[in-house]
Design a protein around this nucleic acid. Structure first.
Lengths: 168, 168
DNA sequence: AAATACTTTCAGAAAATTTTGAAAATTCAA
DNA sequence: TTGAATTTTCAAAATTTTCTGAAAGTATTT
């Protein structure tokens, strides 16, 4: 398979996979495009490569910056804004984990805390309800702290786990 | 807050959160409803409680069974099928992690392996491309084995982590 | 300060996903 | 069997999400 064909396949696949886990297809494709691009790209180049509108490119570039997956680069002598993806995959993975923790796990904990404080355990049924809320809260807090410690851990975690992978 | 009000809020919140991570709102709401229900429910009861169609209930019950989050219960003397949710939240969390691993992580590894075998490293550009593919493959494999070990671990993992949480 | 180059916004259009409900299929009892 | 009860399917409708493109906004140069 030739390079451009492989890149296209990568971008296409990445977009399809992303939709499955609730991420916008175009956002994922722009990310993939920048990840594979040796140099930073501007909005026109992205529009052209992916055949999408300026508004769409702009909006998704902003979202990708919110996710901490791409950076704006101002090139000397250029008026246009250029964008480059973080290429260190370990950093990318940590960033994704961090954002998903913030967007998926934290809201659960908040919602459960909210219910806990607003329901008083003055009947058997309410106690049963609160038990479930409390259990979800606990398990989610554990998931949260597990993710946090993974995110905070540095390269050695990667190396340790690589060893584990090859041991198996 | 009274019990029914709290249950409704729980169901509503659970549904809203679910859409954020790419899970069907109704599926999450049915799951929440069964999680809070002291007894197994049939399709008519669910239709009535959530005000949704029979087709919708049927389809989402099937999906929830695929996810391993609810069970079918055949009640003696009853023609209708009854459904009950797994109430052990630790099991629920493990089941969700297991399914997400299968649906989100495994396909990435497959796609990367596929690209690795179909691109030959006969140019600098192709080598750079393969480096990215390889890195994603590695990091994803690590995430995979991490999730697998958490899923396989038993209650003591939960207890250990609870201790960690409280230590902090 | 006017013109130019570029970015952002957002209402409406298009696309994708979810839901409905009635018909078909299945199950079970008589 | 037959028929009543229940479940499943799926085309069309409703809803939600995403995308477009032109207008408005910003920044930079002359």
């Amino acid at each position: 398979m030739e390079l451009q064909e492989a890149k296209d396949k990568f971008i296409h696949t990445w977009g399809t996979l992303a939709t499955q886990w609730g991420i916008n297809r175009t956002m994922a494709q722009i990310h993939a495009l920048l990840l594979l691009s040796p140099k930073a790209m501007n909005a026109d180049e992205i529009m052209n490569d992916l055949q999408i509108s300026r508004g769409n490119v702009n909006m998704n570039l902003r979202d990708l910056m919110d996710w901490g997956l791409i950076y704006k680069q101002l090139l000397a002598g250029e008026r246009k804004e250029y964008f480059a993806a973080e290429k260190d995959i370990w950093k990318v993975a940590r960033q994704i984990a961090k954002e998903r923790r913030r967007r998926e796990i934290e809201p659960i904990i908040e919602a459960m805390e909210d219910l806990k404080t607003s329901v008083k355990p003055d009947s058997v049924e309410k106690k049963e309800f609160l038990k479930i809320v409390e259990d979800i809260s606990k398990v989610t807090t554990i998931a949260d702290s597990t993710m946090t410690s993974i995110i905070k851990s540095e390269e050695n975690w990667l190396i340790n786990n690589l060893l584990n992978v090859f041991k198996k």
